[in-house]
């Protein structure tokens, strides 16, 4: 049987984490191809519904990438994101979603290597967890 390849949806902020992903590419850094990047203007605009929908459509993991605290292009969008993620994690955990399926990470524009490492690490962790429960269940 082929090895399980997780699907990871990543919401990355335009100013930091997306730029870091771009830098990782132009620097020819390798990371597993399991991630689908969605560029958003700020981690603070990631509506929790986006995350819920990704999980309910069968994503094995969701990553939200933003600027480091203090660096947010919109001053504090990342701190708002952090509170929402804390709440989301509390709800998802209650229904058996493992903690490690939802990641929030601060990755600065210069940290192309951190972006590649984060994806690598996340893919490993989620491979160890196995496919999301949504894949085995008929969810509507």
């Amino acid at each position: 049987m082929a090895e399980f390849e997780p699907v990871i949806v990543a919401f990355v902020c335009n100013w930091c984490t997306f730029t870091a992903a771009d830098l990782a590419g132009t620097s020819r850094l390798l990371h597993p191809p399991n991630v689908r990047l969605i560029r958003v203007m700020c981690s603070g605009m990631v509506d929790p519904k986006y995350v819920l929908k990704a999980f309910l459509e069968g994503a094995d993991g969701v990553l939200i990438g933003g600027c480091w605290p203090g660096d947010c292009h919109y001053i504090n969008g990342n701190l708002k994101a952090r509170r929402r993620v804390a709440l989301l994690k509390e709800i998802l955990r209650r229904f058996g979603f493992e903690e490690d399926r939802l990641w929030l990470r601060w990755i600065a524009a210069s940290e192309g290597n951190v972006f590649a490492e984060t994806i690598k690490e996340m893919v490993e962790k989620i491979k160890a967890l196995g496919p999301s429960q949504v894949r085995q269940k008929l969810v509507a």
Partner: peptide, 11 residues
């Protein structure tokens, strides 16, 4: 909480 400890239970 016991009945809905996973997505199947919630469904």
């Amino acid at each position: 909480s016991r009945r809905t400890s996973d997505l199947g239970g919630l469904m």
